[in-house]
Amino acid sequence: MTFTLATWNINSVRLRMPLVERFLRSYQPDVLCLQETKCPDDLFPFEPLRAAGYEHIAIHGQKGYHGVATISRRPLEIVEKRRFCEIDDTRHLSVKLNAAGKTVLLHNFYVPAGGDEPDPEINPKFKHKLGFIDEMNGVRAGFDGESASILVGDLNIAPLEHDVWSHKQLLNVVSHTPIETAGLEAMRTGGGWADLMRHDVPYEQKLYTWWSYRAQDWAASDRGRRLDHIWSSPNMIGNLAEIEILREARGWDRPSDHVPVIMRMTD
């Protein structure tokens, strides 16, 4: 048996519900973690998700901005909706579920984008992003013989040289600046997290999950970044079967600028 989990920054769940339904019909993940839902909890579109077979839904949303949701075929227990940087943005949700023979603590994150200017002294959005990443150091990959941890989401940082189309040209562009990439990698390694998307992919191979709306032809220019991530505690690595980046979804009608990332594990 296989356990399948997907993560996707949907950029408005109500606007793009037809794409979510298409994805669920075609790929049928056990769990789908959405970010940037842009939807208050009282207006969340439960009905089409339940009609698609996803009875278990945990949400943390707000009007017009941010928001995360975890939908599942399997029972979920809501653990925490954490507040970061003393700001009431809806950027985190953790749940527990059974997968791969373990009780899994699953974190769903939407890290602040950080604005355009990579200087915390003049850009409060970038200062917020750095503070957010710093506070994420408290999120550890806890595990034992019967439990494990998974962390997914739009982390809004492409940490490695080949996670962007041009390392040299993006070194001073928010999402790939040294202070961001070092902070995220320190948080990941210090917390004991394994980067599953890079586990079987050589570091010199380009890997993207996001393509800007600004490009006239995103596929031809292919100026992407790996902003979406799937991490786990070390005791889940042996269950990993496959990671798929659904690049074709960037070409769907009225798409998000991010595409789904799908993880398959032996269950």
Rank of each mutant, 00 (worst) to 15 (best):
T2A: 14
T4M: 12
T4K: 12
L5H: 08
T7V: 14
I10M: 10
L15P: 03
R16N: 09
R22L: 05
S26D: 12
C33D: 04
C33T: 01
D41V: 13
D42F: 07
F44T: 11
A51E: 14
A52C: 08
G53D: 12
H66F: 08
T70M: 08
S72E: 11
S72K: 11
R74H: 14
R74E: 05
I78N: 00
V79S: 00
F84L: 01
D89G: 00
R91N: 03
H92F: 09
H92N: 00
S94T: 03
V95G: 05
T103H: 07
Y110V: 02
Y110I: 05
D116W: 07
K127A: 13
L130H: 06
N156R: 04
N156G: 04
I157E: 10
E161H: 08
K168F: 09
K168R: 10
P178W: 09
I179E: 15
I179M: 13
A186N: 12
A194H: 08
R198F: 09
H199L: 05
W210K: 06
A219F: 08
R223T: 02
R223H: 13
R225V: 01
N235C: 06
M236N: 02
G238K: 04
E244S: 14
R254P: 00
V259R: 06
V259I: 15
M263N: 06
M265Y: 12
